[in-house]
Amino acid sequence: MFIYILKRLFFMIISLLVIVTATFGLMRAAPGGPFTGEKELPPAIQANLNAFYGLDQPWYKQYFDYLVSIAQWDFGPSFTYKGQTVNDLINNGFPVSFYLGMEAILVAVAVGILLGTIAALKHNEWQDYGAMIIAVLGISVPSFIIASVFQYFLAMKLGLFPVARWDSFMHSVLPALALATTPMAFIARLTRSSMLEVLSNDYIRTAKSKGLSKNVIILRHTIRNALLPVVSYMGPLISAILTGSFIIEKIFGIPGLGMHFVTSITNRDYTTIMGVTVFFSILLLVSILLVDIAYGLIDPRIQIAGKKGD
């Protein structure tokens, strides 16, 4: 187990290096970027940039210093906001995004598994078709359209929820639902196909031949095994929630990290784009690692402790 995690950590760090290097290289190549000096900048920001990136130094020194700063959890100054660092943006924005994201993950997982289970148990009946139509719609409609439609009908027309901003739990309901729709649809489909697969397994027949009742078989033998693929979807789920938050936060005017990121893209705030990208990448890679470790602990067939440490 320990060796497995070490190995995974090692490859994670290599992946991170690739990301940081790519980010750094791309920013150097960007016209009007922080390293080219093509853009007129306020003197205070120019001074910050000089101090952080050492713009008078050769590129390899800049690159190395940048790596060191990242390792020290310092993402540098903002290109357009005076006196703001990327760390400030992360500290302000991430808790909001985290709250929203968690709410969305809960909704996606709970509703997705429920829909998928119903569809599988009522295979080829109207419940199945109904759940799968919802799921295909969820996958087919881009989230910004779903978010706008929710906002328009549920908030503006019916007044059930606040239209935008971030003050109370009620403010989080619509954004979380909009954010959850696509991954929920994926989870529903995944749960359904995985349930159907498990139900067709011989050991379900064995359980039946022991005289266990239908409900016991479903609870004890089916759902647990069927949910294993859903656990392995948690990695992509987190990444879907993260990128989804860029759009949802902007539409609902939520001051999270996603909105800051989108704003920095619009303003071509290169250093913020760079810093937040690296932060998001670290976040994703760590979550995926955690999910994989959890998966190994849940599924007895995977022996990450053993010799087959791959």
């Binding site: 994670m12 791309l26 190549a29 893209i265 784009i273 998001f280």
Partner: peptide, 15 residues
């Protein structure tokens, strides 16, 4: 593969 897909795409499109 470990590089987050959409982040990379965004980065490229920005630059």
């Amino acid at each position: 593969w470990a590089v987050p897909y959409l982040l990379l795409v965004i980065l490229l499109m920005v630059v």
